[in-house]
Design a protein around this nucleic acid. Sequence first.
RNA 1: GGCGCCAUCGUCUAGUGGUUAGGACGCCGGCCUCUCAAGCCGGUAACACGGGUUCGAUCCCCGUUGGCGCUACCA
Length: 490
Amino acid sequence: MSRTRVRFAPSPTGYLHVGGARTALFNWLLAKHSGGRFVLRIEDTDSKRSTAEFLDAILEDHRWLGLAWDEGPEIGGTAGPYFQSERADTYAPLVEKLLNESSAYKCFCSPDELEDRKSGSSQEGRDWKYDRKCATLSREQSAEYEAENRPFVVRFRIPDGTTRFDDMVLGSVEVDNRELDDLVIARSDGTPTYNFVVVVDDSMMGITHVVRGSDHLSNTPKQILIAEALGTEPPTFGHLPLVLGSDKQVLSKRRGAVAVGEYRRRGYLPEALVNYMALLGWSSGSEQEFFSLDELIAAFDITKVSRKAAAFDPEKLAWMNAQWIKRLSVSERTARVVPFLVAASLVSDSPDEEELAELERIVDLIDDRLKTLADIVEHASFLLADDIVFDNIAVDKVLTKPGSVDILNDLCEVLSDAPDFEPETIEELTRNLAEKRGVGVGKVIQPARVAVTGRKVSPGFFETLSVLGREKVLARLKTASELAATLTTE
RNA sequence: GGCGCCAUCGUCUAGUGGUUAGGACGCCGGCCUCUCAAGCCGGUAACACGGGUUCGAUCCCCGUUGGCGCUACCA
């Protein structure tokens, strides 16, 4: 009956990183797998650190990854508002309700007092829980203190007993309530704290399943207890293992390299990142390693999520990215590569049909050599720029070798007489020339490649020349031959 | 320190009370070849340790060790 409703609740105080994105992805998959809804809620109560720029980036990252939200910023929904900063007035009455029902109490202990008792309680100063000094304050006393204008916080009264819940990934989890602190739910300035706000928001938004990082595991019993005190059904929880960096430390916001936007800028495909993230801590049980978003929706099962923290491996992501690029059709690959060429000023802002056709030939030529979309720039620059840039080492080691000048001149001559400029024709002429000179074809190709591309490595030589076109090839051979002549005589 | 979670190749993982412990990345070697990629073939490498339970444990139980998380009037 009740549809699955999940939420992802980022705070716009930083960029979305791979760990957070994976949490969003798993939430999204859980919802989509069961035809449910994915809600995006923005936790922007920290107005000092929240910025519009971060918010935009986070939304853009979600769009780019393909994780469309069913309710949230820009599109709204029936359970809004979706910005926590706009929900401020919903909390006070609920705090009041808990107070009236004695599920919460006012605590007049000042931070200094607390600090004193904390360090006094044990020499090590650890394992401190609030000593419940104010838990037994009578209403009269409480009212009296308040009349004296003494500042207070509101604490939740943790009931006796144990709290148990079935975690979708961890299984049954049980905690002795004695381990729990009478946590503050409203600060002395009246604002509610995280653990309270989340419970209220999730409840009011009808969230049925909460999937989050296991760093929240110890909050869960508190939130369940608060939900129960509020008279609402707690959601079902699922705690994902943390994502670690290559150094085995938890992924942190500070490392720019793991920001989702960073991967986009570096020319990673969203398909690859999604595929990689899905396999970080989850496995379908089969040996399938490539999954589209749709395939993930079909195969995803949160109970198969690993309980073990997983290390993020940039190498494997890079490999996966290359694999996904290979799978793109030439026209699709071309379309994706254009923005990178535009950014490098190698093509006009909005290439026309003709330019696109030319680019497709180039992309086809480069073939499987792209590991990222951004690689197109280094691979295609010699094809698109008017002037080539010679690699010094290539010139040194190849172009200035004895005989290079002759070879270049001969090839130039042969090619100018070619009946057409198809790869097959070029190959035949080149091989003939090599044979005539009594050398391997490589001996001809090596200097010619440097002459035409400026480098020692390039896509297939004959195809490269064909794509470049006779005019450019002959001109470059001539220029290089002259350059080689000057360099060798010196 | 307390509480909690976790433990299969370097990394991501599959797996079963009896398997040559499987796959993927990486790395190494070979093939292909005009270079570089890609591709193909082969190799490298793991059940943390100690007790149980059992005819038999990588698998079940306990402990040890180790890793990580939480331990705020942050979220």
